[in-house]
Structures are given as C-alpha cells and as structure tokens.
C-alpha cells in the first residue's frame, strides 16, 4: 500500500490537526451524525442497507482513524488510534483534505475514488453508495457542527475557503479532473 499520498498535510499542520484528547470526539461526531439524520432523513434513505455497513476512515496524515456506521438516527462514530486496527466493511485511506473533499462536493466518484488520491479496500459498492448519498446531501461543515443561519454560512465560508487554500497549498487534486 502506498504510504504517501499527494496532498497530505505538512508535518507542522498535522500536529495542529491531531486532537489532543481522542475520547470526546467520537461521541460528539456520533451526536452530530444522528442530529443530521433527523434533519435530513432522505440522505440515509438513499444509503439504503449500506447504512448498516461499517466504514473505517483513515486520514493518512493523522494518527487517528474513524469507524463509522451511518445508520441514520442509530449512527455511530468511533475515534480510534491508528494502531488499533479494526475490521470494517470498507476502509478508505487518504489525506484529510481529500477526504473532506467528499463532504463539500469538490470531488466525485470518478475523479477521486478511482484516481488513487485515496485507497479503498473492502466493499467498493458501500463506499460508492456513501459517496453518492453525501453528494446529494449538499453537506456543509456547518451541518456537522449543527449550526444554521448566518452563523452556519460563516462557518461554511471559513472552512470551505480554508480548504480550497489548503488544497492548493498541499497540491491535492482539484475538482473536475477528467479521469
């Protein structure tokens, strides 16, 4: 498996991005996904039975990974130390910025999944379903933080703006790249 991906965070930034205390992150994300499922149930309907699949998300430039079962209001997110290898239906590995590109719609299935910006093992179909469901959700970072209105738009703009800049800075792939 390739250990280095195009577009990884520089070392100095990794330290900033690495959460100090891992434990509260999992429950917080679990709550955020469940809250989101209550607001936009159609997203999870779109996932169908793939909602019960487990997704292990491993940012290659961080020392933690996430295990997610996106089962609507029963969703579960666990935050794991990298070494704690965990069986999952599908494992996705890639730079954090590229993985976040899944959320804001910068990347699509053809341009990203299969362009080796990330590596995929396990059930490719589950990942395609998740990608397509997220794509339609028009997810924004504010959805994750659970804020709306003006504050939400502010959060989105700062995170998206920051992501775009960071991508250019790290040389991660950009949208619309024909594959």
């Amino acid at each position: 498996m390739a250990d280095h991906f195009r577009g990884e965070l520089p070392k100095a930034l990794r330290i900033l991005a690495a959460p100090a205390g891992l434990l509260p992150l999992g429950p917080a994300l679990t709550l955020a996904v469940r809250r989101f499922a209550r607001r936009k149930p159609a997203v999870f309907e779109r996932l169908g039975t793939y909602g019960q699949c487990s997704f292990l998300i491993e940012p290659s430039d961080l020392d933690i990974s996430f295990l997610m079962v996106p089962d609507g209001v029963r969703a579960e997110v666990k935050c794991l130390r990298r070494r704690a290898s965990q069986p999952a239906d599908v494992t996705v590995r890639g730079p954090l910025l590229v993985l976040l590109g899944l959320i804001d719609g910068t990347f699509d299935g053809d341009a990203l999944f299969f362009n080796r910006a990330i590596s995929v093992s396990g059930r490719t179909d589950a990942l395609v379903a998740l990608r397509n469901a997220i794509e339609d959700a028009e997810l924004t970072p504010a959805d994750f933080v659970g804020v709306t209105g003006t504050l939400g738009r502010l959060v989105d703009r700062s995170v998206f703006g920051g992501l775009g800049l960071a991508r250019r800075f790290t040389g991660s792939p950009v949208a619309g790249e024909p594959s």
Binding site: G105, T106, F107, D108, G109, D110, A111, N132, E135, A175, G176
Partner: peptide, 13 residues
C-alpha cells in the same frame, strides 16, 4: 454524459 459524476463537475461542464 455523467450521471455518476459530482455536482461540482456537472455544473462546470
């Protein structure tokens, strides 16, 4: 073509 492509890509094309 591109029903499997993302909305960002579709919009640009």
């Amino acid at each position: 073509e591109g029903r499997q492509r993302g909305k960002g890509y579709v919009a640009e094309v």
